[in-house]
Amino acid sequence: MDLFADLPAPTNNTNSGKDEDSVQDRGEKRHRDTDSDDEQNKTEKKVCKGLAKLKGFVAARRGEREDMQDAHVILPNLHTHTNTLPTHVSRLAYFAVFDGHGGARASQFAAEHLHHTLLNKFPKGEVENLEKLVRKCLLDTFRHTDEEFLKKASSQKPVWKDGSTATCMLVVDDDLYVANLGDSRAVLCRVEPTEDGEERCVCVALSKEHNPTIYEERMRIQRAGGTVRDGRVLGVLEVSRSIGDGQYKRCGVISTPDLRRCTLSPKDKFVILACDGLFKVFSADEAVQFINKILQDESVEMKEGQTVEEAHYEAACQKLATEAVRRGCADNVTVILISIDF
């Protein structure tokens, strides 16, 4: 079974809702009130179905670097920042990791601005083909964020040369949309039955990496007049897509993210979003199994106000980042662990 549904091509439909008609008489008004009640009942039923509860935990380690160039955002209730959601959308959540290079300014800019742009561009009112519009929204948001940062970077003296990867997970009700640039990753832990009737946790990739050694990425860079040496763009840049990196944009480095989508189910336990500092010393499956082992550990310290489950996830997130450093990762390490509970 294919986990990811291919997203349709972007649409140019800009209709944000239906115009209100004037009320002609009391009978029509009563009819409209009935329609309004029906819509409210539908909304209440939708909420009563119960969306997955998501909670984010973060751990960040500087490693052996002189400074921290990673940034992150955890907004499980992004929908509370807007009152213009599409009619049938009840929840937006947003989690993101940004791995900066050449400085922290691109990653900080993306962390501060990308979700605001996302909200501004998100579909509104009565819409059809929501998936197409969400996909278009994400593509436009990444492009706009990159353009705005490059505009700011080029106006500085000396010009900023910072760049950043971006792995963002937007949750629309129970649909996950992962937009990724560069070599940070998103992975999902899903429980599946085995042949002997037991259950096992499997690791499902939610993102695709972009580096210049990949054939399609290398061909694009070479067509743009760039070169790939020692696995890097012009022998310097490790990633082939990023926010910022203005000096490499003419060499085929782009800010178009890879987009993937899946729908959450009760079989899903958690998602890991992390920069490449983690995955230099952990495989995705090792990271998932490491988290699962700690979640099953009964000897966990609880902070005031935490539930037992929250304490386990907090401990798992912190220990995973610490273990990455212990295994010899010299890079910054940022891990976001998102628990999923139906």
Rank of each mutant, 00 (worst) to 15 (best):
V271S: 00
S90A: 14
G246F: 02
S90K: 13
C189T: 05
N13H: 05
R200V: 08
A224V: 14
R61K: 13
D2K: 14
E148M: 11
A104D: 11
N292V: 12
E323I: 03
L337P: 03
S16H: 12
N292F: 11
G231V: 00
K29A: 15
V178F: 10
L92H: 09
G56R: 06
F279E: 02
V134W: 07
E39W: 14
K319V: 02
Q318V: 02
P212D: 04
G125F: 15
A324P: 05
R261F: 00
G102C: 06
Y313M: 14
N211G: 04
S207A: 08
L278P: 07
A315P: 11
K132F: 12
D67M: 15
E301L: 06
P266S: 12
A324G: 06
D146L: 06
E198R: 14
F290T: 00
K208S: 06
T82F: 07
G17R: 01
R190D: 05
N77R: 10
D258Q: 12
T334H: 09
G305D: 07
N332K: 04
V300M: 03
E209Y: 09
E147R: 14
E128G: 12
V187W: 00
G277T: 01
F282K: 12
D99A: 01
E310R: 07
Y313P: 10
K280C: 12
T117V: 09
R65K: 01
H88T: 05
L278H: 02
